[in-house]
Nucleic acid binder design. Structure first.
Length: 581
RNA sequence: GGUCCCAUAGCUCAACUGGAUAGAGCACCUGCCUUCUAAGCAGGGGGUUUCAGGUUCGAGUCCUGAUGGGAUCGCCA
């Protein structure tokens, strides 16, 4: 159990007893009462703001509440000190055994330590990447891929039933462009000299696809009009591109549960059904949109379109679902797609999109709100741009200039672990600098190696212990006399471990996997610190040659840190290092 | 111009969704390798959290406005 919620429960129970005894009013809301680790360790192990939160509604002085609460809390065996400080904080100090037990808990639960049931098995759909199937994934997609995957793992760790999903945009004009481009490569494979006019994809990656098509259909499509080959080539090309994308994702360690085709929404009545539902709610109408405020496009002319009344659900303007020529806009199948997710019974939806889709957020939320009558929340996380650097210089990507960096290039060059970790060391809504030279550097400037080094160090200490004749089997470590872990530095490390379950919940509640990365860095730092104290103070070394009982306890602690690092890296999709070479 | 995101140490970023004296890394300075991996550790200097108001016992965090940067703005997806 989370040590902090455990003590919070104690605090709440005592507050209730104070109510029963008439010391504080009976009608108080305890929702804002928090028990947190204090920023400054000198303030104790945990602090509660109870007195300050309750002072106003109780019409009492915070210090009076705090003092009365402190007196009661001291009766609890776990709490050895309770001091009122500052404006009314109550600082608590817990007994050493209260903390030492954490090591045992980590070893018992293993990689499940820190799992929470916050999600209560609710079904959540995380849609991410969803890149157009027109080519391999590039660096820009990488961040969304890593973020979405880590977020999904984080939610799983918090007790949600998670589905990872990819929406294939195979219904629009861009896949026709793809098909025409592949057709040109197909002609090329048959010996023709081809040029790639504007509006086609000249990338080399299509050469193989053209050759494969040539092998499959021979010369059947040479000198034939588009009407003959377009549909077939389109299918063939999309399949080839999705194979490419799947392989790219795999190289990053991302595995989707569902690939959902946009095309499957057309001609099946799904779009119509979703729009009928909205129409039934009076949210669809024929009308003309006002031009964008301030800046009038040169070629603006008001046109009659079919519109979705998204303003009813928080959007700024109503949005078109049909173009003026009557064809669906991209928004229409997207509405149908999200309706399908709702119909599949998800309790919660998350879309991970690129920052360039920022203008899309409100209308999509409006649509989901309307379709589910506000019952299914949609959270949209925007992954901001990745700025590439090479030799300290900004590196521009350009499809045309051929300086287009593919996901695969990055993974091949710096490795999957580094790519993933670095992409997760920033909030998703802040731009990220990705410096090719720095991420391959092996130093403290590179957080991946720092964290992996900590894990490798633990593994090394365990090997040394084994050589020294100390039994390092989990069962033996579990039986260790943890009371021997009484040094401040050891207790500090244990307290850090105790924060893990709490951190997992916070990160899960805010959908912010980057918090895990920062926590791991802190934990690694504490481990390195303790390790080095062993140089000055041999009593702190993990292996005590002449004292098996103490060594066992210390190895148990090291092992527990290793377990948490491993679990944390697991959420981020990074492999813990067994040794550094 | 509308909308969304961002602004914290010289640089790159944290800050437990409102808590106490705002923390790390890089860079700079000083120590530490015969001892479990120095890919590391200990210590030092460095701040009007862009600005102006407001809410609150308490604001980097919430609200309003301004400034600067980025994204986006029917008939692309």
């Amino acid at each position: 159990m989370n040590r902090f919620s455990e003590i919070r429960a104690v605090v709440l129970q005592n507050l209730e007893e104070m109510q029963a005894a008439g010391e504080i009013p009976a009608d108080l809301d305890f929702a804002n009462v928090a028990v947190e680790p204090p920023r400054d360790a000198a303030h104790g192990d945990m602090a509660t703001n109870a007195a300050m939160v309750l002072a106003k509604p109780a019409k009492m002085k915070p210090r009076n509440i705090a003092e009365a609460l402190a007196k009661r809390l001291l009766a609890d065996a776990r709490i050895v000190a309770a001091d009122v400080a500052g404006p009314g904080f109550l600082n608590l100090r817990l007994g050493a055994d209260f903390w030492q037990e954490v090591v045992g808990e980590v070893l018992t639960k293993g990689s499940n330590f820190g799992r929470s049931d916050m999600g209560q098995g609710k079904r959540v759909n995380v849609e991410f990447v969803s890149a157009n199937p027109t080519g391999p994934l590039h660096v820009g997609h990488t961040r969304g891929a890593v973020f979405g995957d880590a977020l999904a793992s984080l939610l799983d760790f918090n007790g949600y039933d998670v589905t990872r999903e990819y929406y294939i945009n195979d219904g629009g004009a861009q896949v026709d462009v793809l098909a025409r481009s592949v057709y040109l490569r197909y002609l090329e494979a048959h010996g023709a000299k081809v040029a790639f006019p504007d509006g086609t994809y000249p990338g080399d990656y299509l050469i193989k696809v053209g050759q494969a098509l040539a092998e499959k259909v021979g010369k059947d499509y040479v000198d034939q009009p588009e009407t003959v080959w377009l549909a077939d080539v389109r299918l063939f090309s999309i399949d080839a591109m999705m194979d490419l994308i799947r392989a790219d994702l795999k190289s990053l360690g991302v595995e989707m549960d569902v690939f959902y085709s946009e095309k499957s929404l057309y001609g099946t009545g799904k779009i119509e059904a979703a729009l009928e539902l909205l129409d039934g709610k009076g949210l669809i109408y024929e009308g003309k949109l006002d031009p964008p405020k301030g800046k009038l496009p040169e070629d603006w002319e008001a046109r009659e379109q079919t519109l979705f009344r998204s303003t009813e659900h928080g959007d700024d303007v109503d949005r078109p679902v049909k173009k003026s020529d009557g064809a669906w806009t991209y928004f229409a199948p997207d509405i149908a797609y999200h309706y399908d997710k709702i119909e599949r019974g998800f309790d919660m939806l998350i879309d991970v999109l690129g920052a360039d889709h920022g203008g899309y957020v409100k209308r999509m939320k409006a649509a989901v709100s309307a379709l589910s009558d506000g019952k299914v929340p949609l959270d949209i996380k925007l992954a901001q741009l990745v700025r590439l650097y090479k030799d300290g210089q900004p590196f521009k990507m350009s499809k045309r200039a051929g300086t287009f960096i593919e996901l695969r290039d990055v993974v091949d060059r710096v490795g999957r672990d580094v790519t993933r970790f670095v992409m997760l060391t920033r909030k998703n809504d802040a731009p990220l600098d990705f410096d090719f030279d720095k991420v391959t550097e092996q130093s403290k400037d590179n957080p991946v190696f720092y964290v992996q080094y900590a894990h490798a160090r633990i593994m090394s200490a365990m090997r040394k212990a084994d050589e020294a004749g100390i039994d390092i089997k989990d069962a033996t470590l579990l039986a260790a006399d943890l009371g021997k872990l009484d040094h401040v530095a050891e207790l500090a490390l244990i307290k850090k471990l105790a924060e893990w379950p709490r951190l997992v919940e916070i990160a899960g509640r805010t959908n912010e996997p980057h918090r895990v990365a920062f926590y791991l860095f802190d934990l690694a730092s504490d481990l390195h610190s303790l390790y080095h104290m062993g140089k000055e103070n041999s009593a702190l070394r993990f292996v005590q040659e002449d004292d098996i009982a103490t060594s066992t306890a210390k190895i148990a602690l090291a092992r527990a840190v290793g377990v948490v690092i491993s679990a944390g890296l697991g959420i981020l999709g990074v492999n813990p290092a067994q040794e550094m070479r």
